Amino acid sequence: MKALLSHTVGGPETLELTELPDPVPGEGQLLVRVKACAINYPDVLVIEDKYQFRPERPFAPGGEIAGVVEALGEGVEGWSQGDRVIAMVRNGGLAEKILVDAGATLPLPPERSFEEGSALILTYATSIHALVDRGRLEAGQTLLVLGAAGGVGRAAVELGKAFGARVIGAVSSEEKAEAAREAGADEVFVYPSGPFDRDQSKALAQAFKDVVGPGGADVIYDPVGGDYAEPALRSIAWEGRYLVVGFPAGIPKLPLNLTLLKSCDVCGVFWGGYAGRDPEGNAAHIRTLFRLWQEGKIAPKVSRTWPLEQGGDAIAHMAARKAVGKLVVTMD
């Protein structure tokens, strides 16, 4: 089988297409022929040794796949050869075949494509955990979503609307503004490109305040960070919840006096850690996502695909913050 491997620390250009022997499933495992692998921001970080997990090299990046069961390990029940599946893996997805834990694998509905299936779990599971468990979002509240056209941002917009919130999408371009509107945002705000000096930061804070309204944003979903964080926080409502999701624009430093003045919470969102600590709660969220998917209230938006040999280009596209919706590498 072929796999796109990281042999040395570096950017997407360091990945090498390599021929490997087919893996053999062990007890409780499935051998899955990968059909599609979604690209996420952790794939940018992990090959540069900047992610919280550092796999032993060589390894293939890619943590979110859809494919077909090719073989079953000892003791596996409930699955058969030919079953269409979705699986979250820590890494290894940019390969033609992969071993996955049978107990952590989900069925891919027959009416859904492999590309769409590979793009569902990480972004929507992160966002539902963020909005429900950390943000305590309620119907009628105002939700401000930064990076609203990207994978997790778009998921937050769709879920916010499904939960009855007023959703404001903040994006960096008119193209992304249209994508946020397509996802269901009630209002869209195009913010300027950073970095910002003091006056520009104040102006951006006022722009956030103007778009969310005098009551402020009850929940702010921030997968962007950088110079956008403090201006967004200044638009938060009394006892609002600011959700820290990611930092592609850099890790911000927030003035804590703002949290006192607004009596607000700054909440970290680490879905992987949550899923490991509360598997039952995570499973309940996954069931909700599948129901909303079936009802048409959420739908992964795959904006572009690449073949396996160009998987590094997909990661570079993500690193350049050009992604609208989800980016997917296909194996056929």
Results as ranks from 00 to 15, higher is better:
Asp222Arg: 03
Leu122Phe: 11
Glu295Cys: 02
Val219Asp: 12
Ser193Gly: 00
Leu31Ala: 09
Leu17Ala: 11
Pro21Cys: 09
Gly273Ala: 13
Gly151His: 02
Gly281His: 06
His129Asp: 09
Met331Asn: 04
Ala119His: 02
Leu254Met: 14
Glu64Gly: 00
Ala283Thr: 05
Val171Ala: 02
Lys50Asn: 10
Gly273Val: 03
Gly213Gln: 12
Gly276His: 09
Gly103Tyr: 06
Pro214Gln: 13
Glu239Met: 15
Ile168Asn: 12
Ala319Lys: 08
Ala156His: 06
Glu77Trp: 00
Lys301Glu: 09
Ala155Asp: 09
Tyr191Thr: 11
Val100Thr: 05
Lys2Asn: 14
Pro300Ser: 04
Asn91His: 15
Gly225Met: 08
Thr123Lys: 07
Asp101Gln: 05
Val145Tyr: 08
Leu289Glu: 13
Tyr191Cys: 05
Thr18Trp: 11
Gln141Arg: 14
Glu138Tyr: 08
Gln81Arg: 14
Ser80Lys: 15
Gly92Asp: 07
Arg321Asp: 01
Ser118Arg: 01
Val219Ile: 13
Pro58His: 04
Thr123Arg: 01
Val167Met: 14
Val269Cys: 08
Gly164Lys: 10
Lys35Thr: 01
Glu116His: 02
Ala319His: 00
Pro25Cys: 12
Val167Tyr: 12
Leu146Ser: 05
Ser263Val: 08
Arg33Gly: 15
Val89Cys: 04
Glu74Pro: 03
Arg33Phe: 11
Val76Ile: 11
Asp222Ile: 03
Ala3Ser: 14
Ser193Trp: 00
